[in-house]
Design a protein around this nucleic acid. Structure first.
Length: 549
RNA sequence: UGUCCCGUGGUGUAAUGGUAACACAGCAGAUUUUGAUUCUGCUUUUCAAGGUUCGAAUCCUUGCGGGACAACCA
């Protein structure tokens, strides 16, 4: 038997080397979102990576909210992030918050002061920006840099006690204002903010900066492999510096390239702008790249996990084809979605040789592609039907194999019909087709011997259920949204949402539930939208069928 | 005009000094009671130049190209 050796990504290689060298017995990772927005597809990559790594190597993953900035963070986001991670199919070992570590982080800061590695600075942010220098120009020392340990201790205590207003003082690490790495030029590690925190309330008025919270939190949790995106590469030096000076658990940071997708905007800030300016219906608008949007649209966790598996993990910048995600969605939906028939743009067909008032129930497979037998549902068949306007052409082109005058077509799971008379209105528009059916051609019991190439979907006119359908296209018309220089809103696709208020569904769809997936035959994959009421069902188009017409 | 990271088909990802491969996309064709699914085939690849080596996508050097870095954001 062949054992298929799957190649390792660079992080797995590091982990296996660490494990082999006995550096760790097991691994610990974490997923550290900031609760200031909703999770998007890019986060899915990070979630699958962090949780996947721990699963693969028998370790654990913590969910840790990086909530060190009270002015942007809210509990609402916390709840939605948790729901999204669960939906993706992952379980965290512990639910933690950087804010839980505020006392310890404060103590770390005091320790740094005591070791002479931090000082209180009264400079304004403008002055500090000036002191920073530039990438090619070394910075200059602040005049407060040489304060005594005692004075620093006293001032930092006062900061904590609320004796200094916002912005008047900060605590900075004392490193090297001439360092080639800008982040090492005495970074701010604590700032005064008289702001209400979503968890700690008004307990604190000093809050640590990211660089003084993240690595320390990793150390407290004994995270072995702290995996983040490439923009944090320059932070690694600082990350290691704090760990060394504080003499705490030596977590290691590793960086991978974030996910970029064609026609997709991954910036949380800009997504929030779309929400706030009502350019979309909310964070869960089905056009949004958020996980809640994707879920509402009908994308599945299985599809996302497969997608993340397929895109791999590396360090070079990438721009993944949206079509790869769509491929994964179709691949999964093809296996699980029940087939249903819905006529979007109806054309009435009267079967003249079918008895008036007669009703037959036609069994039709729910899904022949499912792993297990998905059974059938019954479709009412009667003398008057709707078919798709598109499925009839008065003057058919060469390779058209649906209905045309005198032509024949198979009604899926029904009979073969032959088009006789074409009825038009005063303007010459086709309004009705008078057809005949071949009674021996009943699906599954066809003894007619008639062969037709075309098979179309249909509904019985009297039994059709009017429902609404919302068709979505990509939100942006520009392939690489990272490359644009003007306002991203200039790149919005004006046709990203197309609502069909009234289409005709087969009766079985009356039982549709939110969370179920359907394939409307020849039209695409759909799911019930939570906007639906008993009077009016609304279906979202998840993705079209592959079209090789 | 500094430091760091990165360069493999159109897009991603592998090949860990020994035949450049897999997926998506694209293009053909077969099958099909969904123009879906399935199946078959095809197109298209190592940034450049030197060097090391019997042998280089891989190691070395120098270029070139792309990205990141100067928030009291994360």
């Amino acid at each position: 038997m062949m054992t298929e050796e799957k190649s390792l990504n660079f992080i797995e290689e590091i982990i296996e080397a660490d494990l082999k060298a006995g550096k760790h017995k097991t691994i610990a990772t974490r997923f550290p979102p900031e609760p200031n927005g909703y999770l998007h597809i890019g986060h899915a990559k990070s979630i699958c990576l962090n949780f996947g790594l721990a699963q693969k190597y028998g370790g654990k993953t913590n969910l840790r909210f990086d909530d060190t900035n009270p002015v942007t963070e809210e509990t609402e986001y916390v709840e939605n992030i948790k729901a999204d991670v669960k939906w993706l199919g992952f379980e965290w070992a512990e639910e933690l918050y950087a804010s839980d570590y505020f006392p310890q982080l404060y103590a770390f800061a005091v320790k740094l002061i005591n070791k002479g590695f931090a000082y209180v600075d009264d400079s304004t942010s403008e002055e500090m920006a000036k002191q920073k220098g530039a990438p090619t120009v070394p910075g200059t020392n602040s005049k407060y840099r040489s304060r005594s340990i005692e004075e620093n201790l006293k001032l930092f205590t006062e900061m904590k006690e609320g004796k200094h207003p916002d912005g008047s003082k900060v605590l900075r690490a004392k490193i090297d204002m001439g360092h080639v790495n800008m982040l090492m030029r005495d970074p701010v590690i604590y700032r005064v903010k008289h702001a209400h925190h979503h968890r700690t309330g008004d307990t604190w008025c000093v809050y640590p900066m990211y660089d003084f919270a993240h690595g320390q939190s990793d150390a407290i949790e004994q995270i072995t492999h702290s995996v983040c995106t490439l923009e944090f590469v320059p932070h690694r030096e600082l990350y290691d510096w704090f760990i060394e000076k504080l003499e705490i658990y030596p977590s290691k940071q590793y960086e991978f390239a974030r996910l970029n997708m064609t026609y997709t905007m991954m910036s949380k800030r800009k997504l929030m702008q779309l929400v706030n300016e009502n350019l979309v219906s909310g964070w869960d608008d089905p056009r949004m790249p958020t996980l809640s949007g994707a879920r509402r649209r009908g994308y599945t966790p299985e599809a996302f996990r497969e997608f993340c598996e397929k895109i791999g993990v590396a360090k070079r910048d990438n721009l993944i084809d949206l079509s790869l995600l769509e491929f994964c969605v179709r691949e999964h939906l093809n296996k699980i979605a029940y087939r249903r028939m819905v006529v979007f743009d109806p054309l009435k067909v009267v079967i003249t040789n079918y008895e008036e008032g007669k009703l037959e129930m036609m069994p039709s497979e729910n899904n022949t592609e499912a792993a297990e037998n998905a059974g059938v549902r019954e479709m009412p068949f009667s003398r008057e039907l709707f078919i798709e306007k598109d499925d009839f052409m008065e003057v058919p082109p060469k390779k058209y194999f649906r209905l045309s005058p005198g032509g024949m077509v198979r009604l899926k799971s029904g009979f073969i019909i032959k088009c006789g008379e074409v009825i038009k209105d005063a303007n010459g528009n086709v309004t009705e087709l008078r057809c005949t059916y071949i009674s021996e051609s009943r699906s599954g019991h066809d003894t007619s011997g008639v062969q037709v190439k075309g098979v179309i979907h249909w509904v019985s006119a009297a039994h059709a259920v009017p429902v609404e359908v919302r068709q979505y296209e990509k939100l942006f018309v520009t392939e690489d949204m990272n490359a644009i220089e003007d306002d991203f809103k200039n790149h919005l696709n004006p046709h990203s949402l197309h609502v069909l208020p009234k289409v005709y569904a087969e009766p079985a769809l009356l039982n549709a539930k939110v969370g179920e997936h359907f394939q409307f035959l020849r039209m695409g994959y759909f799911c019930l939208d939570p906007d639906s009421t008993r009077e009016k069902l609304v279906f979202n188009r998840t993705v079209t069928l592959r079209d090789s017409k």
